[in-house]
Every structure is written in C-alpha cells, then in structure tokens.
Amino acid sequence: MTRPEDSLAERQAALVAALVAGAPIPDGFDPRLIDTARRALLRKRSSEVARHWPMLAASFGERWPTVFAEWAEARPTRGSFQDGLALARSLPLTDLAAEELAAHQSTPWTRLLRRLRPRP
C-alpha cells in the first residue's frame, strides 16, 4: 500500500500494478471506480488483441471480451501480438483459429516443410 508521502513514481507504479497486474488498490482510491477502469482497460486490450488475432477472437463470438479478460486479468500486457499468441497456445482452438496460430508461427523453414509434406 502506498501513502501520500510516497513519491509520485511509487504511487504511479502501485496504481498501474492494481490496474493491470492484480495488485491491491492503493489507499484512498474509490475501489468501484478503479474496478471500472480496470475492466475498461481489459475491454480495450481485448479489442486490440482481436485486431491482431481476428480468427481467435471470432471463434469465441460474443464471449471473446470475457474469455480474454479472464485470461488477462493478472497478466500485464506484453503487447497485443504476444498476448494473443500466449492465449492461443493455452486454449483448445477451432480449426480457423488453429490455422491463424500456425500462420503466425510460420517461418520460411516451417513453410518449406509444409510444402514438402506429401498431400493426403
């Protein structure tokens, strides 16, 4: 918990940790409003990840913001692409979402191997 006599840097760090990393809410803030802000940040993050990972997001339909928020709640962002990658690797995927993951993980060498693989 931070106190008013703590430095601005410490107080800002404690607030950000409460908003994105599941840390306790610093004293004096309105917990209802901080929670509202926390959820607004998760919604914004979920739509940014959806832009990088449209198939992944679409595979959950209207549940996407909730699915993402549950996963992301205590995980500070590592960037929208990395967040989507980590989420995609941690869940069972639909075919389209799995293809999207495979495409994002592809390199010239994985593509070469796929081309060399005999077609069924």
């Binding site: 760090a13 950000v16 962002t77």
Partner: peptide, 22 residues
Amino acid sequence: AFVRAGGLEAGHLLPLPRSREA
C-alpha cells in the same frame, strides 16, 4: 497523462494526481 510506471504498461491514458509534484 501517464501510460506506464514501475515497468508495467497500463494500456491507456491514466490521470495524474492534481498535485504540485505532478
């Protein structure tokens, strides 16, 4: 506004305390 602190990105614009220090 500030958008990061203590090595963490907030992901959006956060308000400052309206203090002399800020």
